[in-house]
Write a protein that binds this DNA or RNA. Structure first.
Length: 273
DNA sequence: CGGCCATCCTGCACGC
DNA sequence: TGCGTGCAGGATGGCC
């Protein structure tokens, strides 16, 4: 479940390993992932030099020397294994051969990932995305104004990538707990002082997680065994049955917006009117 | 517009 | 121990 901090961690790793290298060959081991691979992907990538790696929401954008952009989304279980010595793993779907003799392998058991190539400013999967929570345009005023405009369940809204991009199940639960807002609150009824806290907490939590290289669960390493430490910092996610760190009340796991949701009913206030 | 559901897929945690 | 079942989850698309 890579979210913004995990994808950012992957970006840093890919940048270190890939920038300046030329792609000598690409092997596709199946027809596609979530979607079929684009026609002629191997040919289009072969011979290209990788110039830059960017991130938008949970997408990786790999800029080539001819203007082509390789788009990679890790879905639920995707990972890039760099300097791999082996590409025969059960779920190794894509192999990229680089001009330094190394091999990068895309492995994705659940195949919810996306790999596409495009050129220009616009891509169907990117065009509708909301602001980046760590960029300057995600201001407290912006959040206040836009929560007011909607009458939606706050958890559903924060998970909605067209509203705000990059948050997933983990960081939404963490941000709402840190702000003492119940995930079943309605966006427009959350008072200003709580929205200010929410805005602040989203940025603090994401930044701190990036600093720690993200959250890693068993079975989920990003790059050659490098793994995130933010798991140790999780205050509510996965803590069902344990005492809340703020009030010792038992943390519950409920369903909100179709998602498993962790909540402290004592600390987190439900704003519904 | 918003909520809800199904879909994609596999691994894993259950219960018997 | 081993099998079957059901669930999780990011994003989309359809339905009401």
């Amino acid at each position: 479940m890579p979210e913004l901090p995990e994808v950012e961690t992957v970006r840093t790793g890919l940048a270190r390993s890939w920038i300046g290298k030329r792609i000598d060959g690409v092997e596709l081991r199946r027809e596609g992932l979530r979607f079929p691979f684009p026609e002629g992907l191997e040919e289009r990538l072969t011979g290209r030099v990788i110039k830059q790696i960017r991130r938008r929401a949970k997408y990786l954008l790999i800029d080539m020397d001819n203007g082509d952009i390789l788009l990679s989304h890790l879905g639920m279980s995707g990972k890039w294994i760099l300097d791999s010595s082996d590409s025969e793993g059960k779920h190794d779907h894509v192999v990229i051969y680089l001009d330094d003799g190394s091999m990068s392998v895309y492995n994705d058991p659940r195949r919810f990932g996306v790999l596409d190539i495009f050129r220009g400013e616009s891509h169907k999967l990117l065009d509708h995305l909301g602001p980046e929570p760590l960029e300057d345009d995600f201001t407290c005023d912006w959040l206040l104004e836009n929560l007011k405009k909607k009458k939606r369940n706050i958890k559903a809204l924060l998970l909605d990538q067209s509203f705000l991009s990059g948050l997933g199940n983990i960081y939404v639960d963490e941000s709402l707990w840190a702000s003492n807002i119940h995930p079943n609150s309605i966006s427009c009824f959350i008072p200003k002082r709580k929205v200010i806290q929410l805005h602040n907490n989203i940025r603090i939590i994401l930044s701190e997680s990036i600093r720690q290289l993200g959250t890693t669960f068993i079975n989920f390493t990003f790059l050659n065994g490098q793994s995130g430490n933010y798991s140790n910092e999780l205050k509510i996610f996965g803590n069902q049955g344990k005492p809340c760190e703020k009030c010792l009340n038992k943390v519950k796991k409920i369903k909100v917006a179709g998602r498993g949701t962790h909540v402290c009913n004592k600390c987190q206030k439900k704003f519904k009117s």
